[in-house]
Computed example of a mutant assay.
Amino acid sequence: MQVKKEKEKSGESSSSSSLSAVSDLVGSLDEQRLYREVTLALRTGLRDARSDFSFLRLHGLRNILKFMRSVASNDSTINLFAHTQSIPSLQVVPVLFQHSLHECEDQIVNNLDHIFSVHPLKIKSPSTDAEVSLALRVLEGCCLLHKESTLFAHQFKAIQVLMNILATRGALEQGACLDALISLMLDSSINQTDFEECNGIEEVALLIGDKQADENLRMKCGEFLLLLIGHVNGREGAPMAAVHEDIRRLLGEKSASLIWAASQFGSTLDPEQRLTALHIQARRVLESLDLY
């Protein structure tokens, strides 16, 4: 009887081990399948994003952004995406700055050698407003999902590039630019330093203070200042430790005090409530500026 019981226990243990091995195998296969899907989606999107033609780059950026939104819903896929960004051929940020966010120089013909040569002159179509805006959204997503992307962006002088977009492009790109700037500077002292050296606060203050500017853009500037102050306030020795004083100098005591107080909102709110509160506080900031 005792021998029979020991055999049954041994059989149960063997069965349990077999089930565990099968489960591990299935899990490993699922992870490999998911990794193949992630890398395939990136390779396909990046192939188009490297194109010489703007309409193809736009198509590639749309696919990358769609892919990143699906990635953001799951911790395991976020980790897979982060792993892919250690592989040069799959890195997204360099492609953005080498193509969509790259300022195309005028195609000046210095000589006519290309006419008599068998090699045609290579022409790259400039980035459209929609392409620049979409590239900025992809950049924002990369920095939020993968912190090292902020360092990749710094290597391409991202803050200087984005400040130029903010100063020269339309409202569509400017709004996306402000969102991307926040993601670039989040916990990145090196990008915060670049922003300060570019007189970034002055540029944003000019936009929010311009009553003839697009109202939605001014609202976005208000949200930007609230998020910026809320993030860097009180950090002694931080690159932007004096940002509150800069805003006080540029926008006045009343508006600066309102921005400082309003920036402390929402620590206990859920994401949707926090976003609503951000819109409300940004509206109050605009109203305080428009009173004068």
Rank of each mutant, 00 (worst) to 15 (best):
A282I: 05
L226S: 11
N63T: 09
E6C: 08
L121Y: 02
V38S: 04
N79F: 00
N79T: 08
A242R: 11
L29I: 06
L172R: 14
S51I: 02
V95N: 00
S125N: 08
L207D: 01
K7Q: 13
A135I: 09
L25G: 01
L275G: 00
T150P: 03
A282G: 10
D24T: 06
M240W: 07
S15D: 09
L206S: 07
Q85F: 03
C198E: 15
V118E: 11
I123M: 09
L275H: 08
P94V: 10
S15W: 14
C142A: 13
V92D: 04
L251E: 09
K122G: 02
V26K: 12
I247G: 01
E103W: 07
R47W: 03
S23F: 06
G175H: 02
A135D: 05
S14A: 12
Q160I: 01
I182P: 06
E148K: 15
I123R: 14
H154S: 12
K124W: 08
P94F: 08
I64P: 01
Q91V: 03
L112Q: 13
I208F: 09
N216A: 10
I159W: 05
I182L: 14
G11S: 13
L207Y: 01
A158P: 01
F156S: 12
V92P: 00
V93C: 00
A205S: 15
L217M: 14
H244N: 10
F224R: 04
H83E: 03
C142E: 05
S183K: 04
Q174S: 11
V26M: 05
S28H: 03
F152M: 07
L29W: 01
T77A: 04
N63Q: 14
N110I: 12
N164L: 01
F97Q: 11
E131V: 09
V92C: 06
I280Y: 06
Q160P: 00
N164C: 03
D187L: 08
I64C: 03
D30C: 09
I165D: 01
P120D: 02
E223G: 07
G141R: 10
A41Q: 07
E103R: 14
N79I: 01
A21I: 13
L184C: 12
Q160L: 03
V109W: 05
H279C: 10
L151K: 14
A238G: 15
V243G: 04
L217G: 08
S189V: 00
E236W: 00
L225I: 13
S51Q: 09
C177E: 06
K254G: 00
R47N: 09
E253V: 14
F81W: 07
F67R: 08
H102L: 10
N111H: 13
G45R: 10
L178R: 11
P88E: 09
P94D: 05
I201Y: 05
T193R: 11
L178Q: 13
D210C: 11
S14T: 05
L19Y: 05
R33N: 11
E197H: 13
C221R: 06
S28W: 02
L25D: 03
D48Y: 12
L58S: 09
F195N: 07
S86W: 05
Q91P: 03
C221F: 01
N110S: 12
R284W: 07
F152T: 09
K124H: 13
I247T: 11
R36M: 10
L101T: 07
